[in-house]
Design a binder for these strands. Sequence first.
DNA 1: GCAGTGATCATA
DNA 2: ATGATCACTGCC
Length: 198
Amino acid sequence: MSPVRNLRHINHYGKNKGISYGMRKVPHSFFNRKTLIVAKELVGKYLVREVDGETIREVITEVEAYVGPHDLACHSSRGKTARNEIMFREAGTIYVYFTYGMHWMLNIVTEGKDFPAAVLIRGTEKVSGPARLTKHLSIDKKLNGMKLGKSSGLWVEYPKASKANRASKLRITRTPRIGVAYAGSGWAEKPYRFVLQN
DNA sequence: GCAGTGATCATA
DNA sequence: ATGATCACTGCC
């Protein structure tokens, strides 16, 4: 059984009624680490959305790291603004912003308070593309500034340790980030996008 | 290949 | 106040 099939099996196991047997919530401390580490480790974990009594639980397949104010592709690279002040908050805070007049982007704040960095969630097993993902999961500005957890109805889970998932090795590839060609000094080319291979 | 669509931000 | 931009998508 391939690693991904193994994860899908676990996903299916805990699916209905919002129950998550064998799953554990990722603590906020998970996000209070270097953004590249957080990004890479988010791939293969489960994004959980609880809204209107329904629970959606899907494997995260694609993310990008925006590593701090020195990163010229990062919103915080030109100082604090009304929009990006969320990025200066504690790790595990949800940063949702609006772009192109119609799309919501989902990010999770990383690293220490007052260090503005985040991971953009770009896709799950069911949907690819950051704007399609937020539409699929009913994510918009109402979540902006909330923390991951029951109160926001959005969090991340991972399978409890077991022989099955300890044996699974995820195949993750790294590429440059999408849509950041404007970023100078080599930041556009940095391989900060992490994708789970099928 | 590019239109759509409007908040956000820099400039003034 | 104004104009350019935009961590995108879908249709041509």
